[in-house]
Design a protein around this nucleic acid. Sequence first.
DNA 1: AGTATGACATAGC
DNA 2: AGCTATGCCATAC
Length: 113
Amino acid sequence: MDNTFTKIYALARQIPYGRVATYGQLAALAGNPRLSRIVGCAMSAAPGDVPCHRVVNRLGGLSDAFHPMGRETHRMLLEMEGVPFLADGRVDLGACQWAGPGETTHNQTEEVR
DNA sequence: AGTATGACATAGC
DNA sequence: AGCTATGCCATAC
């Protein structure tokens, strides 16, 4: 069974509005921090139920090959969700990185890191 | 059935 | 401090 994939899908789906998570984060939550690749692979095969646009790499932006409709669209999507963007064109992970599956529907006043 | 590749991340040098 | 090498699970050929 797709244990890992299912976990990744579930985690990605649990990402609250206005928040983003990194591949390593989901990978760690999936059971192994090295599953980062699998997370990307899972997103690739992820159905429309998974907000893959909320999943970003360590850079705070999408991967090198994640532009089905363009980076601008991605940025607009996150911006529309309330995710602040840096001048670098990347998401402000230090301000909107997902805390974890236990902080989904909680006060987002939680200071990350 | 086995091999190769892949939307990343971490560690070592 | 930046680059190289390795690891992982699943999918595709």
